[in-house]
Design a binder for these strands. Sequence first.
DNA 1: TCGTTAATTAACGTATCGGTTAAATTGAGG
DNA 2: CCTCAATTTAACCGATACGTTAATTAACGA
Lengths: 112, 112
Amino acid sequence: MQKHESPLPALFAALGDPVRFAITERLLTQGAQSAGALQDVAEISAPAVSRHLKVLRNAGLVTQTVDGPRRIYAVNPQAVGQLSRWIGGHEAFWAPSLDRLAALLDEKDSTP
Amino acid sequence: MQKHESPLPALFAALGDPVRFAITERLLTQGAQSAGALQDVAEISAPAVSRHLKVLRNAGLVTQTVDGPRRIYAVNPQAVGQLSRWIGGHEAFWAPSLDRLAALLDEKDSTP
DNA sequence: TCGTTAATTAACGTATCGGTTAAATTGAGG
DNA sequence: CCTCAATTTAACCGATACGTTAATTAACGA
């Protein structure tokens, strides 16, 4: 039997860099784009962007498709789904606390 | 006006290390624990655990309370809430794709 | 086929990260 | 006051991460 190494830390690590986070948000909000179009997410060289894209791809967070001479990158919905499920799986833990906070704020107003 | 530096990359980076991810899951599933009780999340020394906890704290992902000589760590629900809101904010993007995947799988069964 | 555009890979320097052991700190108690 | 237990801080070290510029690969049109 094999050790189930969770892919989540890798996903988190990929998003943990500001440039890669910016790239990911761009792809999420504006849809798929070529590497060149992503050039202006930060003031860094093209090779730097390229390597960030490689990290994102290795983590499974983005996919690459080839269109002529350019490579088109898009967020992999399944990866985001994994993140969502992880957080959702712990929602029972943190959501009540937020409710409780809201309740406390309410209480402050209604029952002194 | 000040530049709104998103705290999300820092949160992601904090979770991007396997040890810190394990610590976080422990705190999520088993509740608050002392640094000593977290010792066995990995086969590393106590100072190493301590520094990971410091990173988590600096990222705002965990809180520290003092109980006599020991420090009790707990996940900060607001931080998890931030992650949840980020993903939720992009749900419109990725959730439909998952539906489409399910549809494709269905299709494979019913309409060949 | 030659040149141009798009992107990646190669090679390299520096900074940060994550681990260790040893020393310092802090609180509880005899 | 002295000691013990819990934890953090200090000092150090090797590996990795991220940036750069230069060179390479790949696709396309004149």
